[in-house]
């Protein structure tokens, strides 16, 4: 009688299941590098968690049972490029778990999304390694053993390929004009579509509510439309903005993390709108090509204030 229809670890299992399409799609495009990340990040995260839990006087495996660490590590692994030095996912996951989660008191206590803490730390510490995206695995001509060789000796000039957002930035800096992007040709768009599929599953299973993803995507699309209509040669189309970078993933999997998001429905809408606007602002006028991680972290900071603002109303 007193057992709920689903327990916390089951919720997390569903999230993992919802990550599957995007993970498969990434592997399809980017090959074994993704698999390696997907192995290294969780291993590092779980090991760190066990160590910190022991130091905090908790049973080392207590948080393994709820799967939340696994979710954070996998989201991180799917955020970083497929070919990176092997220590990168290890360090990222360690920062995510130790700094992003355990230092605040573990499950349910972290003000920031742990995966994004880890990702942002990597992004500012290793800007080169986190922004070099290879072309599709089949076109690189690399073998699996190349993943274990020295990262710097890889033929980056031959195998790197700028993402849509990167390419746009470069064009603008060079004083050129933007041309419509061929999204179908981009692996990122296909992966974004896979995230959308996973997000729909989460919505259907009512693991997440529609408020944050809807308002976030709406805000990005709205901002992009306004500026696109003003000057299409300087600002990319809304479709490009939504379907490139980590926008869809952020909308359904990162921003919806209930621990670091507000609880009130109206606060959630404001939260989503804020992230959407920030994503667009950082992408268009900031120095980073994508802004999902920073946008989410900034709005995480505002979540308690939003909850305070809307408390007592529903």
């Amino acid at each position: 009688m007193n057992s709920p229809t689903r327990k916390t670890h089951q919720v997390m299992n569903e999230v993992l299941l919802a990550c599957l399409p995007a993970a498969l799609m990434s592997v399809w495009f980017y090959g074994p590098g993704i698999v390696l990340n997907l192995i290294l990040a969780p291993l590092s995260a779980l090991a760190c968690e066990a160590v910190v839990s022991t130091m905090r006087g908790r049973p080392p495996m207590s948080t393994w049972a709820d799967r939340s660490t696994l979710v954070a590590a996998i989201l991180l692994a799917l955020s970083i490029p497929p070919i990176v030095p092997l220590w990168l996912p290890v360090i990222g996951a360690a920062i995510a778990v130790v700094v992003g989660k355990q230092l605040y008191g573990g499950l349910g206590q972290n003000p920031f999304n742990p995966a994004m803490v880890g990702y942002a730390a990597l992004l500012v510490s290793f800007p080169l390694e986190t922004s070099l995206w290879p072309t599709q695995w089949s076109e690189t001509g690399l073998t699996v053993t190349d993943l274990f060789t020295d990262y710097n000796t890889l033929p980056w000039d031959a195998i790197s390929s700028a993402t849509v957002l990167d390419a746009n930035n470069t064009t603008l800096r060079a004083g050129g004009e933007l041309r419509p992007n061929d999204l179908i040709a981009q692996p990122a768009s296909w992966i974004a579509f896979a995230w959308l599929l996973g997000g729909a599953w989460l919505l259907k299973r009512s693991i997440i509510s529609w408020h944050i993803p809807a308002s976030l995507l709406l805000a990005v699309a709205f901002m992009a439309s306004v500026f696109y209509l003003v000057d299409a040669t300087r600002y990319a189309s809304p479709l490009t903005h939504v379907f490139s970078g980590a926008c869809v993933m952020g909308a359904f999997f990162i921003a919806t993390d209930p621990v670091s998001a507000p609880a009130h429905r109206r606060a959630r809408i404001v939260f989503g709108l804020g992230i959407g606007v920030l994503i667009y602002v950082i992408r268009s006028w900031g120095s980073f090509p994508d802004g999902v991680a920073f946008a989410v972290l900034l709005m995480n900071l505002a979540a308690p204030a939003l909850d305070h603002l809307y408390r007592g109303r529903s």
Binding site: P4, V11, S62, D66, S68, G108, Q109, P258, V259
Partner: peptide, 8 residues
């Protein structure tokens, strides 16, 4: 275990 604020 700890609340994850899932909202159920």
């Amino acid at each position: 275990i700890a609340c994850i604020r899932c909202g159920d």
